[in-house]
């Protein structure tokens, strides 16, 4: 009777596709990623198509998202971080739209897949490493050497290295686990509604309770959807700041 709450995370092929021995079928997840990319592109270009000085509601939202990310970068990395604006903006918009489209019942949450979040996090860390070495050369390794007495460095340097290496994991798992947990919870309570409703009698009436809970969790999940996109983007900014300025800004 009840659905498996993990069922919603199953990737199902729509159009089977194989390239070079790899299964790159167009799946329900691919569809949502295309929807996200196209919707975000359309929203951010069409809303701005009039370029009016006094913005419409849609244009105002597009501008707000732009300024939100621009301010985020500026406050955490300074002016020279703004050259990473397109990257951070894309990350933020992609994660935000993925999270929000995942809230539509029956759709698919792109960011509830560890492969996607880990790929995004790896892209961030890769950008950080490339930027760091391009900017400071081998001096970028000073990032792992905090200002501390020599004796402590034997302890601190490994800790710094480990904390740096775990960043892609923490960055990806945070987003993945948040989306996964929220949607699982929703599915579990939805299962309760179905179970109680089908039980008959007093229990059917009681099914209204998990229903209200779902509404409440839904609102919470909308907040989480935004918050996780924000956290992903701001952590990217913070990591980029380290690559740009090492420990100077602290």
């Amino acid at each position: 009777m009840a659905m498996n709450p993990m069922e919603q995370f199953t990737i199902k092929p729509i159009v089977p596709l194989h390239i070079g021995g790899y299964d790159v079928s167009f799946t329900n997840q691919s569809l949502l990623m295309v929807v996200v990319a196209v919707a975000a592109s359309l929203f951010l270009t069409l809303a701005m198509s009039k370029r009016s000085l006094v913005p419409s509601r849609a244009q105002s939202m597009a501008e707000m998202s732009y300024e939100f990310v621009a301010n985020m970068i500026q406050s955490s990395t300074g002016e020279d971080g703004l050259k990473f604006f397109p990257f951070v903006f894309t990350l933020f918009v992609f994660v935000l739209f993925s999270n929000f489209f995942g809230m539509i019942p029956g759709s698919f949450t792109v960011t509830s897949q560890i492969a996607v979040t880990f790929a995004l996090a790896s892209l961030v860390i890769l950008t950080v490493i490339v930027t760091g070495f391009a900017r400071h050369g081998i001096g970028f390794l000073k990032l792992f050497v905090p200002k501390a007495p020599l004796a402590l460095l034997f302890l601190l340097v490994p800790i710094e290295i480990i904390s740096f290496l775990t960043r892609p994991i923490s960055l990806s798992v945070r987003l993945f686990a948040n989306m996964l947990a929220g949607h699982t919870m929703l599915a579990v309570f939805a299962g309760f509604v179905v179970l109680l409703g089908g039980a008959g009698g007093v229990l059917s009436v009681l099914s209204i309770a998990p229903m209200f809970l779902i509404v409440a969790i839904m609102l919470l999940e909308l907040l989480v959807a935004f918050l996780q996109a924000y956290v992903f983007a701001i952590l990217t900014c913070i990591y980029l700041n380290e690559a740009l300025h090492l420990h100077d800004h602290h």
Binding site: P13, S25, M33, A37, A40, S41, T45, T90, V116, A119
Partner: peptide, 24 residues
Amino acid sequence: TFPSQIFWLVITFAFLFVVLWRIA
């Protein structure tokens, strides 16, 4: 499922990146 996920992520993310970078 990972190859398909990464494959389509790269395509869609690159598309969005180019649109936001060059147009929006």
